[in-house]
Simulated scan of single mutants.
Amino acid sequence: MTASSLGVFPPKPSALAEMFTGTPSLIGAIHLPALPGSPHYTGQPVSEIARFAVEEAHAYVDNGFDGVIVENHWDIPFLKPGEHGYETAATMGVITAAVVAEFGKSVGVSILSNAGECGVAAAWAAGASFVRVNQWANAYIANEGFIEGQAAKTTRFRHRIGADPVRIFADVHVKHGAHAIVADRTVAEQTEDAEFFDADVLIATGSRTGDAASVDEVSVIRDNTVLPVIIGSGITAGNVAALMKECDGAIVASSVKDNGRWWGRVASDKVREVSRAAGK
């Protein structure tokens, strides 16, 4: 039984319905080139990166997707939460603002790894509607080391700067890590934890970027929350129809890139294939 069903919190309106008109909601991930401050940054002007982001967004939205999420995926190796510099929040804000100017409220921000406060700062400055936070509740071991849930710090920071309209998309059973340290929390319990800690949308993923979530795991998450549930990895034209029967939408990237990997360019024809398969 969830916190909402017990009446601890009033029922929330669907954050997906606030942002997107399509059902299921398809969100394309824009994997940015390396940004200032990261090891792979080559001095490219931020204005050029912003143009890249707008081009990628058009490839998604012009071919049937409902929105996009802007992500600093080339800032590898990723920093832990609280370690990101001012340059990351500022650059992500400027780039995302260019995308928002084209596409309005159907835009989100993801700053890796797990940078809830930095993401909210960039999203609020840019006029974006949501952020993705990979570990919202509990803790786990990831490539970056020990990662704690960011709910308490992020919600307080969001409120302090007046950014309460920015919605939280939170992963459950997060990829790229040893889940819940000692694995004593079931997926059902982790789902309830994320809802109790005031997430707005829950995300089911595979074990790493590009891997599909299992139907069983998506079903467990869906059955233990009143929040919208989307899939955060592994969606293809071949599986999208079956998986969308189990959830409310998906974040898509690798399968619609020209090389089939996250670091490729978005291919319009592949986006159309996924959109059509999803019934868009």
Rank of each mutant, 00 (worst) to 15 (best):
F78R: 09
N72V: 06
H159P: 10
A151F: 00
N134E: 05
L6Q: 10
H176G: 02
P45Y: 07
V201Q: 03
A126P: 05
K245Y: 05
A170W: 03
F169H: 08
A15G: 06
T205Q: 00
S207K: 08
T154L: 02
S38V: 10
V274I: 15
E246W: 11
L227S: 04
W136P: 00
G82L: 12
A98S: 13
Y86D: 15
V8P: 10
A89F: 01
F65V: 04
H173V: 11
L35W: 10
G116C: 03
A15H: 02
S113A: 14
A128W: 10
K270D: 05
I76K: 12
V256F: 00
D211S: 13
H176K: 05
N114M: 01
P228K: 01
D75K: 09
L202G: 10
F169C: 01
L35C: 06
G210W: 01
M19V: 14
D258Y: 12
D248T: 05
H73T: 12
R158K: 06
N63G: 06
Y140S: 14
P33H: 13
I161S: 10
Q135H: 04
L26K: 03
A128C: 13
A180E: 13
G43M: 06
T2H: 02
V133F: 05
A139D: 11
H73Q: 09
G119L: 09
T155L: 15
I147A: 04
D269K: 01
S233H: 00
S5V: 09
I251D: 03
A212N: 09
T205I: 04
C118T: 15
R185V: 15
G232S: 10
P13C: 07
A194L: 02
I76W: 07
K257Q: 14
A213M: 07
A98P: 05
F103S: 12
M92G: 12
T42S: 13
A59Y: 01
A267P: 01
D200T: 07
T96Q: 09
G64P: 00
S129D: 03
K105P: 13
F146Y: 14
A188Y: 04
R222N: 13
N224E: 12
V201Y: 02
N259R: 07
S275M: 09
D223M: 11
V68H: 04
V172E: 06
N259I: 08
G145E: 12
W262R: 04
D198W: 10
L35E: 15
A139P: 12
Y41M: 09
G64T: 05
S254W: 00
F9Y: 15
T191E: 03
A29P: 11
V133M: 04
P39H: 09
S214K: 09
A267S: 11
A90N: 08
D66Q: 13
V252F: 07
V240L: 08
K257D: 02
E217A: 13
F65C: 05
E273I: 01
V252Q: 02
F196N: 11
